[in-house]
Design a protein around this nucleic acid. Structure first.
Lengths: 209, 209, 209, 209
DNA sequence: CATGAATGAGTGTTCATTCAT
DNA sequence: CATGAATGAACACTCATTCAT
């Protein structure tokens, strides 16, 4: 009946939130339901968050910070652009298999409307924009990338493919779409996806691999 | 379920629906409001559609069929893959400037959950999957594409970039993200986007342009 | 289950509202309960009124307009101030016996806070302020009232006594208070109340009755 | 139920309660807020009082006892009825300027419902009923009051005017109403109010001043 | 047959009250 | 013994859906 909220239970709350928001979207999610999932009362959510939106934002941040950290770390590990990209692709695929709901939340905010979307875009894409743009710029300088490429846009295309990759493993519409192109087997053959995407990206950079 | 759209009122209804769904998303849209926008009564919507969801589906179909037709037509016009791709890119950019709401609806369904998403994915992406895959296959045969490319996945990457392109002109999160990469100016400089995307795609194909 | 709202049923709504607001006050009243009392659904209240407050305001207006009309009519009937006052007193006592809830609503708004109170005060007291002030002014001119009286304040004192009279028949606290002064019997002896109040008022005016 | 108010914390609690109840009314007041205002925990309120209502009652008593004492003392100071009344009026006006919240609490309970109101009425008005009635009775005996006046009712009218006076300086609706009769200036011109009310009361008593 | 008023389950949110700490 | 976090019933309000007119 009465249990002080430990960190563990706060995490339960967030996880329940992430699951519900991932499944039903922001508008469709019900706080009562989230509370039930987490084995808590409705009121307690409001002890920690001002309103539904604030709680949703926290769920989003909790979800994506981790991913973003992993990604930027992985992207900067090697000096070779190709190596960096490969690491990102590998990580993304592995991550998507294990964190479907986080990617679905990502998709949820990407499809959102209003100020929240703008704010979150800035918060979430800011760092990756810098990281990827830098990656391309360096590649150009070292002759690993065609000299006429616009770093910002090439980085943008990379990121676009990465986002779609994530959604394609996690969100229903995108999964079905990938299945349509490649058949169900693609979800079991991570190496193929990795290999082909790397070919595509390497070619785009102008590196003849 | 599927019905000849002969009636004028049906058209009004669908257009009002598309606008409302694009602006507020599926959950946020109100049937009463749609009826008002269309100058009709709520009852008439229920005469044609069983429930909100069925009506939404019809709005989606109505929106995307047209786009799909344009795209597949444009993609098949030329024998040259590059030419075909350029036409698609050009068309997509132009279309996105003029049909923001259709792209937003597209994003709305792509972020949807449940059976609806699966069904729609099949309906909408089916043809483009074939068209793009075919495009790549032919390119391979005629030596215009690297021989080791998997046609299905390469087609999938193309389509992914195209979807993101559409969203990036139409949906708030994606717009903000593009702005973050390239600055506000990119929305005025369609040629730059076209040029760079073509470079990226051509490179990916292994065509040294 | 479904019945078009006739004027009768709209009146039911208002009456249920007046009863609930009178019994529990604005804050304590529950729209769900009002709907139940009226045999209607919650939603229908919102078809007619924007929010709880608007509905409350309508209940207030519905309650007090009638009273106000009666009062101003009665007050202006005779040329003799004393006669006018007596009519008002008589009417008020009779009215209070039959319309307890209306007086309780009156008390509810008089004890309200915020803009609403200010607005309602202006709306409700405006006319009686004029009427009573005029009454005193005329009385002064015709020598029926002491010459040194300030008409506005004397009118204000009249109205104050009238308001208290109303509350004293209708609202629990004020009833108990009157009982404390005069015993339970006073509620049965309207003539006594009328006689004494007239004595009090006449004396105040300086008319030796 | 009734408890020595020796404790400092109890005083803080009550004062915070009075302010909150005066500002927001019984229903609108929040115990959590009161606790915060008083620098205490909610729990401590429940240590002293069974529920919100009991605490409210105590706040009311605490507020009005003082006022009642002052009033009965002042009313009994002189042998002359007029003098006594003048003192009461003066005190009331001065008190109202400085203790708005106490008058607002007074109005809050007067507009209350249920047993609470009855109980409080008895507690609060009991003494003043006796005092005022006595005042009038003595005045009658000494020929200072018309011989046909009913002491209880005349006392009741006095008290009614006094209550209204208090509310008119403290509660929004009544303030606005007074303004409507007399203009904003009345709140600055205490002497005028005193003079006119004394004229009114003296006249009512039948004393030709 | 079309209308749009009525329905009522469901939402986010608040807050008196409890009780483990 | 005091604290204030947790509880959960209750509220105002919305809107997909129905169906009398």
């Amino acid at each position: 009946m009465y249990r002080k909220l430990s960190d563990d239970r706060l995490n339960d709350m967030l996880r329940a939130g992430i699951d519900e928001f991932a499944e039903k979207g922001f508008a469709g999610a019900s706080l009562a339901n989230i509370a039930k999932r987490a084995g808590l009362s409705v009121g307690v959510i409001y002890k920690y968050y001002e309103e539904k939106e604030s709680f949703f934002l926290e769920c989003v941040r909790y979800s994506l910070n981790d991913l973003n950290n992993v990604l930027t770390e992985v992207a900067g590990k090697s000096d070779s652009l190709e190596e960096s990209l490969r690491s990102v692709v590998k990580t993304l695929i592995a991550y998507s298999h294990e964190n479907r709901n986080i990617n679905r939340i990502y998709n949820e905010i990407a499809s959102g409307r209003g100020e929240m979307s703008v704010m979150l875009a800035r918060e979430i894409e800011d760092i990756s924009a810098l990281v990827y743009t830098d990656l391309v710029r360096k590649a150009k300088e070292s002759g690993m990338c065609r000299s006429d490429a616009d770093p910002a846009l090439f980085a943008f295309f990379f990121d676009s493919l990465f986002m779609m990759l994530q959604f394609s493993y996690s969100c229903e519409y995108y999964r079905e779409r990938l299945k349509l192109y490649c058949g169900e087997e693609i979800f079991e053959d991570d190496e193929k996806m990795e290999r082909e995407l790397m070919r595509f990206l390497s070619g785009a950079l102008g590196v003849t691999g």
